[in-house]
């Protein structure tokens, strides 16, 4: 985001309006994910939520993360989801009304309500923030967001950054191993499916790699 737009966004009404709209988008998308019968609809609702979160990132001066959010999440990951949905043919509808596990749904809702109440209570009534800076540098001040984030990642968090490369390599290997057929069957149809699965893994890797680096 160009820094020139910041004064505009700083305007009170606009600011509040953006938050409200983004929050509404996020929550409606989230509810859509949870309640959608068709996995494809769920994936599209997820895009909605991710996009709303990206907006709020921008609203909080995290322009780089917003961009990555859109590119990696909304772009790569959701596409990957849709790809898998289509690939394995689970785009049929799920009966959301029925719950085979007795007591699971009330318990889940009770746990959710209780957890939410506790989170809100903690946020509202207690001050957990110590105020001790992490040493990674200030978020505000001169310089672009990308520059500050890059400085932080490549100095203070260099070791975790390098470790993420190992993590990604492992993920690639894992995906290949999982998608590979143990023994190539004689039937041609299965082999094609395996190849497609492999391709999916590689696609995910191909998308994730440039995004993280």
């Amino acid at each position: 985001m160009p820094a020139a737009l910041a004064p505009v966004l700083a305007a009170t009404a606009v600011d509040t309006g953006v938050f409200v709209v983004a929050a509404a988008v996020i929550l409606s998308g989230a509810v859509g994910v949870v309640t959608g019968r068709n996995p494809v609809h769920c994936a599209l609702s997820l895009v909605l939520t991710l996009f709303g979160v990206a907006v709020l990132f921008v609203a909080q001066d995290a322009q780089f993360l917003a961009a990555v959010q859109v590119i990696v999440y909304a772009g790569a990951i959701v596409v990957l989801f849709l790809f898998v949905i289509m690939l394995i043919g689970v785009d049929r509808e799920e009966d959301v009304r029925a719950e085979p596990l007795r007591g699971q749904r009330p318990a889940a809702i009770a746990v959710g309500v209780l957890g939410l109440a506790e989170l809100l209570g903690l946020a509202r009534f207690h001050h957990w923030v110590t105020g001790t800076p992490s040493g990674a540098g200030a978020a505000s001040g001169p310089g672009s967001n990308v520059e500050k984030l890059a400085r932080s990642v490549f100095t203070r968090y260099l070791l975790p950054f390098e470790i993420t490369s190992a993590l990604l390599v492992i993920a690639v290997v894992g995906a290949v191993v999982l998608a590979r057929r143990p023994q190539p069957g004689p039937g041609g149809g299965d082999g094609a499916e395996a190849n497609e699965a492999n391709g999916a893994g590689e696609a995910a890797e191909a998308e994730a790699e440039p995004a993280s680096r």
Binding site: L114, G115, E118, L119, G121, L122, F125, H126, W128
Partner: peptide
């Protein structure tokens, strides 16, 4: 755990 945190902080 959250409940513990609430009680503890309270």
């Amino acid at each position: 755990l959250l409940a513990y945190a609430v009680v503890r902080a309270g």
